[in-house]
Design a protein around this nucleic acid. Structure first.
Lengths: 194, 194
DNA sequence: TCGGAACGATAACATATGTTATCAAGTGTC
DNA sequence: GACACTTGATAACATATGTTATCGTTCCGA
């Protein structure tokens, strides 16, 4: 949730450049694990190209939590900040190009950044956006049926439908892959009535 | 998420005192609405005594999102920071004593606070804690059955079971109140086998 | 190019959960 | 004390969703 905001807060670009020498560029194949559940997060990850998911293990089964695309940044936030074991695994879905920035440099960067005018506002913005995202996901889980959730995905985030294998989407929606197939079949049938 | 952290960050106490004159003390009965869904949040709320819930409306039905107790603070975060309509209603469950601090004073306070050493760390801590809370809720919704979620509540947050009416808990757990009754009956039966 | 993963669809059956309705106990109000 | 209101339990039935199994397709590595 740092360079992710380069476009919204252009002043961040200077920091990107300044800390570029400390960033580690990686070209990695699909199913590469960048952080394993139970380990402590050491790096902030910025995605230049590719597709990454986070998931946790439930009785031997993967449950996908979130997807990240080009020009997005991520870390296992709690683990990164508080140095506790990560509740999630971070893994590539597509071949990807990522930049890693080690924790100590992130901390330096934040200290640097705290002298920027509007820093408080910027941090709050970042924070609020992330938090709003999670609250929305959470609320959608309670309020909407899996079918509605799938349709939301189709309408609002079609890139996920297009690029992510269906069984990952199923666990992300909170249903079995069999049921997601049923949902798709039902929706397709509905549409064909026209 | 400010004075909420008074105990963790004692330096906040000075700010509490400093901004006390700007805080509005209210003694209010149950079912008092402090912020209505669709309105813009103007106040940060600190609970001295009582019990508050946040909920949203789904087809005329209340869905409870979260409970707040003594010495906790809250606001409709996104609405408060970004001045957008609140997705949730904030309402008392028990008779309560709350302090309201208007937005402009919160902003002043934050600016003030940003000169404290360790401010960055403090803000991140607050942020992370809230975010972790929502992620955990979210993950629990996907991973656990309603029965497990109920048992978690009994074991980890019994004060909620004790003080919150059951139909609020049902919607909080994501099930109908009828089903929550079933769950309780089933668990009671299981226990009586000893 | 063969064979095995990975991916997705579908059927049959089992289970979990919602919906509606009814009953009972407690609580406050007039 | 009669009444409405809130809270909670339970039964009967309807629906949504999970589980297991089978099949076809595609894609990739030996």
């Amino acid at each position: 949730m740092l360079f992710h905001f380069r476009h919204k807060f252009p002043q961040l670009n200077a920091y990107w450049d300044k800390y570029l020498p400390f960033q580690q560029r990686l070209e990695i194949p699909p199913k590469t694990i960048l952080l394993e559940e139970g380990k402590r997060s050491q790096y902030y990850i910025y995605i230049e190209k590719g597709l990454i998911r986070t998931f946790f293990n439930k009785n031997g089964e993967d449950i996908t939590v979130q997807f990240f695309f080009e020009n997005e940044g991520l870390s296992s936030f709690d683990s990164f900040i508080n140095n506790v074991p990560s509740p999630i695994t971070i893994e590539t879905i597509e071949p990807s190009v990522v930049y890693l920035l080690a924790k100590e440099h992130v901390n330096q960067l934040l200290d640097d950044l705290s002298h920027e005018p509007g820093f408080v506002h910027m941090i709050l913005q970042m924070t609020v956006q992330r938090q709003t995202h999670y609250i929305n996901e959470f609320v959608s889980f309670i309020r909407d049926t899996p079918e509605q959730r799938y349709q939301n995905l189709v309408n609002e985030r079609p890139h996920i439908i297009q690029r992510v294998p269906q069984h990952y989407i199923a666990s992300y929606l909170g249903v079995s892959k069999v049921h997601l197939s049923r949902i798709k079949a039902k929706l397709a049938k509905g549409k064909s009535h026209f």
